[in-house]
Design a protein around this nucleic acid. Structure first.
Lengths: 328, 328
DNA sequence: GCGCGTCATGTTTGCGTAAACATCAGGTTG
DNA sequence: CAACCTGATGTTTACGCAAACATGACGCGC
């Protein structure tokens, strides 16, 4: 910076004013300084800037995996919106989903240069984390149960699941089978609870669940069991990938979809429209979830506003051929 | 830090020594200091640390999208390995894949606190970027043509595509059709070039390509055209998602896979094993790509080593039922 | 034409840390 | 026992920037 100042024939402070866009600099001087910056390839040192200002303009995202469509799409949206607000994103992967792993990640985060944290963790390990959080750092939680400790942003998974099950009942099925996600997943638990709730309200018996792990392979295994039951005519699968496996299992067993069995998935991943047959599923608006995360975090950072409780992003059922004749 | 020093009854410098793990501190003193840290909830300020040390222990990752399996898996691996080395990951999304968008992202990166940069960009926009890169910052490029300006890490896509096409020829097909990815994609271009190369070497005519955009939907459109050609009996699709669409198109046209048409994909996404039929495809080792990225970058950062040219991570064909009877 | 406000710019200072150097106690050697 | 070393700790300083305050030039009104 001193070099730039010298070259432009001004003081370092004036260079600072130009680089931060402060007013009160003569247009001619500004051009002079910008010119000198260009010439010397000057880049402001963000560490010094952060040190001086006491903020990093960075948001930390702590998560288990990017391998699920939902997580990666949400992170992408967070990054995009954060960038728009002049914030960068720091990714903190928790390698091992154990309490130690979480603690380690949070410890690293504590030493990290972030102004706020988004936690994307579907499993029940958040409890361990409280004390480790650097005090005073705003937090937003996605896809997990934060109690009332942190604001939560999430898709309205319960409503989506209700729509799915109701849709199947309205098609005339006596009841609806369910393939769950992993047992330690909150999303899975909420989808299953909503499924059970709708069946109860309709006075229908809730068959025993099959349990999967989100993967297509696990869906296939669950689907084989369900395909063997002639009384199973409607299946609500907790995500689209497992639904893919279920479809294959039904196909191999000679049970036609949707004529013999109707299938509904969850997530509306892009591929779902190209399954055989195209999958009826619940659409999740991940970009919106990401946007609301950033918004909630920035509210805390900038306006020191009180956490806004839980923000639910709407979900909606997309009817395709796996539950009936082509909708288009 | 001063507070900790006061509470522990030592100087700030001793606190610093403890927090950086420097030797030459009496065990009793060290315990005292750690105790005081705990009590006061002291966290080293990373901005000040970075300012003093002149390094951020952060790697910037610049990319277009996390929506593709390859990108998100690669980023995940980069983050995991970087974390292991004590580095954090900063994500820089390029919202608009235009030259301006790239320049904007690189400008942001220039001001950003990173010790090195991984560029994950499959399109041809890298050229514009040279001048904007902060000079002296190590760079590694993935999935793109960096010429000889930067070291490149990538999966051996050409070899994977060759294996795929050879496999189809060995099954006795007269020639192999091809569905490409988007025109501006390097991966797509390399896979297509390798496809053409094998056909040429075998003295087979190369049919005209169908062009997709990586999406299952575009694969479906391409598949409909190919399904209408009775002479098309073998298709190499440039990624698994498009292959999903191709499979559906063939199914709807009444052409059986693999009896009438053999199909090979690329990527080996987890779902591919659950397609109907399970898809023969080329496995890419994204975790390894991520690992090598970090390794190449750290070599530059720590040892100021010369860029190691191009690192190719092996790929391999996974034969499944879409090209023949069940392999298992 | 004197006082005062306004605006562009310069000077001083300190953010939290760690390297470099200084100090000091205790021990070792010839 | 003096000269010297070693190892633990303290003191000074600078990293690059920007807020706060200081300066100084100019113009305006009365």
């Amino acid at each position: 910076m001193a070099d730039v100042a010298r070259l432009a024939g001004v003081s370092a402070q004036t260079v600072s004013r130009v680089s931060t866009g402060h007013p009160g600099v003569l247009e001619s001087t500004r051009r002079e300084v910008l010119n000198a910056m260009q010439q010397l390839g000057y880049r402001p040192n963000s560490a010094a800037r952060a040190l001086k200002r006491g903020e990093f303009r960075t948001i930390g995202v702590i998560l288990f995996t990017l391998a699920t469509t939902g997580n990666s799409r949400t992170v992408e949206a967070i990054a995009a919106h954060a960038a728009r607000e002049g914030y960068a994103i720091t990714l903190i992967p928790v390698a091992v989903p154990t309490q130690d792993g979480v603690l380690g990640a949070f410890t690293r985060l504590g030493e990290l240069a972030v102004d706020g944290i988004v936690v994307i963790m579907e499993v029940h390990l958040l409890d361990a984390v409280d004390l480790t959080l650097p005090p005073g750092v705003p937090v937003v939680v996605v896809d997990s149960d934060a109690g009332d400790r942190y604001p939560v942003v999430d898709a309205d998974q319960a409503e989506g699941a209700r729509q799915a099950v109701r849709h199947l009942l309205e098609l005339g099925h006596e009841t609806v089978w369910h393939v769950t996600g992993p047992d330690d997943s909150f999303s899975s638990a909420r989808r299953a609870a909503a499924w059970r709730e709708v069946l109860d309200q309709a006075g229908r018996p809730a068959p025993e669940c099959e349990h999967g792990d989100w993967s297509a392979e696990s869906g296939y295994r669950a689907g084989r069991k369900l395909a063997a039951r002639p009384d199973c005519t409607a299946i609500f699968v907790a995500n689209d990938q497992m639904a893919l496996g279920v479809l294959r299992a039904l196909h191999e067993a000679g049970r036609r979809v949707p004529e013999d069995v109707s299938v509904v998935g969850f997530d509306d991943i892009p591929d779902a429209a190209s399954y055989m047959p195209p999958l009826t599923t619940v659409h999740q608006d991940w970009p919106e979830v990401g946007r609301r995360c950033v918004q909630a975090l920035l509210e805390q950072i900038n306006r020191h506003a009180v956490p806004p409780g839980t923000v639910l992003v709407p979900t909606r059922l997309i009817a395709r051929e796996s539950t009936g004749p082509a909708a288009s």
